[in-house]
Structures are given as C-alpha cells and as structure tokens.
Write a protein that binds this DNA or RNA. Sequence first.
RNA 1: GGCGCAUUCGUCUAGGGGUCCAGGACGCCGCCCUCUCACGGCGGUAACACGGGUUCGAAUCCCGUAUGCGCUACCA
Length: 466
Amino acid sequence: MSVRVRFAPSPTGHLHVGGARTAIFNWLFARRHGGTFIIRVEDTDQARSTRESETMVLEDLRWLGLQWDEGPDEPGPHTPYRQSERTDHYGAVAQQLLASGHAYRCFCSEEMLEAKRKQAEAEGRPPHYDLTCFRLSPQEISAKLNSWAPFALRFHVPDDGDVTIDDLIRGEVTWKKESLGDFILVRSDGLPTYNFSVVADDHEMEITHVIRAEEHLTNTHRQVLIYRAMGWDVPQFAHVSLILGPDRSKLSKRHGATSVSQYADDGFLPEAMVNYLTLLGWSAPDGRELFTTEYSIGHFSLDRVNSAPAVFDHQKLDWLNGQYIHSMTAAELLPRVRPFFDAPWLEEGIELVKTSVTRLTEFHEALRFVREFTPAEVDRSFCEAIAADLRANGAPVDEGSYKAFVERLKTATGAKGKALFMPLRLALTGSEHGPELVRMIPLLQHASESDPMVLSPLQRVERCIG
RNA sequence: GGCGCAUUCGUCUAGGGGUCCAGGACGCCGCCCUCUCACGGCGGUAACACGGGUUCGAAUCCCGUAUGCGCUACCA
C-alpha cells in the first residue's frame, strides 16, 4: 500500500514554526516513500478560522518549498480538502454510529455540562460526562425530539475501551478506558468536532500514517475508539514533540518570532529554515547538519526523530542561514536580496560582503558605506598622494590594477603594511573596518559610474583633503 | 487532581548493555590566517535529573521520585 500522509493546519493565522516542522516531516516522509502529501484544512472551529488565514498558511508552505499533491487548491480523489465543506461526509458516519449504538443524542446544554463538571471536580471525581442522556428511554428521546430540543451527538466509551497504539516515534502507548468520558462527536450546530472529523477524513482519504504534534497524542485514544466502532483500519501514528522557547515552555509569541512569514521578512532563506526545522528533532544518519532537501528526502526516517521536546535556538538558525548565504553565489543571492535592498551595483556588492552577513536584511547595512561617506581624519599628505595617483592612473578596477596602485602608493608614501592600508581604508570609507580593499576599491569605482548616489574613490579622497 | 509523554554539555543532538572517564554541531574562550571587520582553520570549556534494582558489566533494560510539558472542551 502506498504511503499517504497529510498536514492538517487550522487556519487561525500564519503558519507557526511548529506546524511548519510537522508539515516538513510529513512532506519528507511522503517523498522518501514515493507517497502522497496532502493538505487538509481543519476549519471546523467557525469562531477562529478564516479564509485569509488559509491563504496565508498555504503561502507560507509554498515559501518553504513544500509541494502538495492534494489540497484545497489542488483537486484530488477526495476533494474537497476543507473540512467545513465536508459536512455531508460526516453525516453518514454519524448516522452509522448512532444506529449501531456507539453514539447517542445528548440534550444537555453547555451551561448544564459546565455545572456538572464543576461539581464533579469539587467532589474530587473525574470531570467526565455523567451519562444522563445515555440513560434516556426511547420515549424520553422522542419527546425531546418532538419538542425540537437541540442535541449534540456523543460517543459512548465501550467497556473494552482500553487502547494501545504503537507510535512510530514513542513506541507503545496505552490508555485505560476510565481515563475517558463520553465525548462529543457532532456539536448541536451540526458541525463535527476535531476528534470526529479527523477520523472520518483520515479514513476516507486513505491516510496511512498520521504524523502530527505531540499535543494530539492523548486524543488518539478517542480516535482509535471511533475507528473501532466503525470497523475501520487504524493508521500508523507518529507524534512529534513540541518546540519550546528558551524558558522551556511551548514556543509562543512572547518568545519572539513564531511564524515562518516573520522569518521570511527577517531575511532568512527558506532552504535554511527547512534545514534548521528538520534538524530540530531529526538527525541525519551520518551526523551532517547542513543538507539539501534532496539529501533529507533520501535519508529521512521516523525512527531517527527524537521524542523529547526541543528548544528553538535562534543562534543556530542564524549560523545555518549564514552558511547558506556564504555558500551561494552572488548571482543566486541577487534576486533574494533585491526585496530588501537594491542598487545597480548590487551583485558586485553582494560578492564583496556576503561572508560577513547572516541574514538577507543585513546586506543593506553591510553595503551602507558605498552610498554614505563621511570623511575621516587622515594625514593630508597621504591623501594627496592617493589623489595624485588616482588622477594620473585612474582608479583600480580589478585585482591587477589594485595591486599596481598599491605598489605605486608604497613608493610614493614610503608606508607599508598597516601604516599603508589603514589610512587608505580610512580615506576611502571613513571607517577602519570593512571588506577587503582589493575588491572594495574596484566596487567603489564601478558603483560610482552607475549610481549617482555613489562617490568615486577620487571624490572621496578629495573630500578628505577638504 | 487523573491520564499520557519527556528528561545526555547553556542549546540542538549521537548513543539502542561492554569499543563512552560519552562523540558531533551552535554558542562561548584561546590561537592561527590577516590592512581592519568578517570568513576560514586549529584547540579548549561543558552533560548521561535523582534513587533503587536487573546484570560480571547500564547513558543504554525495569521500578520509583523529582521536574517540565500535553490532554482531561459542543478548540484544533
């Protein structure tokens, strides 16, 4: 049987990095096994879900470079892929559960339930449903029905409700039926709850492996019970641990950026993001930490996914992003940098400073010296020597002419080493720090020819002289 | 409270009974390279939560304790 996995985001905002990692693991697993990767939007929470959020989540996934085979915008054999549009699919299942006695109508109001819960808790009992409506006689039920009393559909936990699963990441996990109370399948407004729709959809979409966040682990108990009641095969489960903030609590907004779009805005490359997120929980068999998606697709397996939660480490992300930027060519980087900063001489500029940058947003600052020049205090005669040479020979435009330029300057000023290069750097950039002069001076010359905002080396030296 | 999951350097992790006085990566510190800043190279710092078992032998298996997290909703 071929692998079919799904990522099931609820559209309540931008894609969270935790969700992104879950999506990546699903995607890697599907690609590794030549399977199908499905996006299914879980929007049954009417109060919080929006179509705008769905669009954003899909955009975020696309930015990361994940492609799905079936989804809300990618028709497949199980269209639609939006739960709010699948209500008729759930009706039949609900009917069957009701008819087979696995579920019953519950007429209790939310207020009543709340009161019962509070009382149970006060008396030290588990806050489970008290079975009032389970015990209703057929006469009582038809009476309620005839009076148009609203009802929800509730699942009855059977006597043999103990469940054991063999989780692909955590091994055997067992629950006793006592830990569960009868739970809602269909709300009184007719919409299914998550635990119900997820089972109906996963079954109908022929999902073979459910790879999702750990917070769903205990829900699996309920879901397996529904599979059993319907006589359906149970898929394999793999529960991925949570991503934590520096204080080891679940990563949230107060820890800083949590949505992938924010990382895009902050100048991270999607390749680095995917690499980092993959590394957060999974490790390559040969221990490498920098890898392409081709590599991780070729080597991904769930038994190398760590079951312990992981702290999101911004420093390592920075390092990784820097590694990607350093190893890319200026031509490759060019279109990536443009949204953040642009200039006619950008490609040469990127080449000059890329090793000092860790995020795309930093190119602007790293290249600021090209357009902004503040003369520094430099020995006047030294500056005049530079100016004289530039006037006589023109500014260096490549490594060869730069070297010749430096040789002449050495002769003219008698300075060498630091005593030569420091005043030169200062005269041309106004700063004692910056990229290597051999490529910087030619850039300054080239940039001044194409960009009116840029002063040429000669103009700079002249300003130093005053 | 109940149930479940987790616990190796500050962080991400390797490790699935002896080859581990625990390996790699980020960070940090030092050295080298070097006109500076970076990059890069080299070296260093630093961990098996605790307590009992099982075993000739445990980071690795079992049981407790502690801590963290999750679920316990007509949220997903």
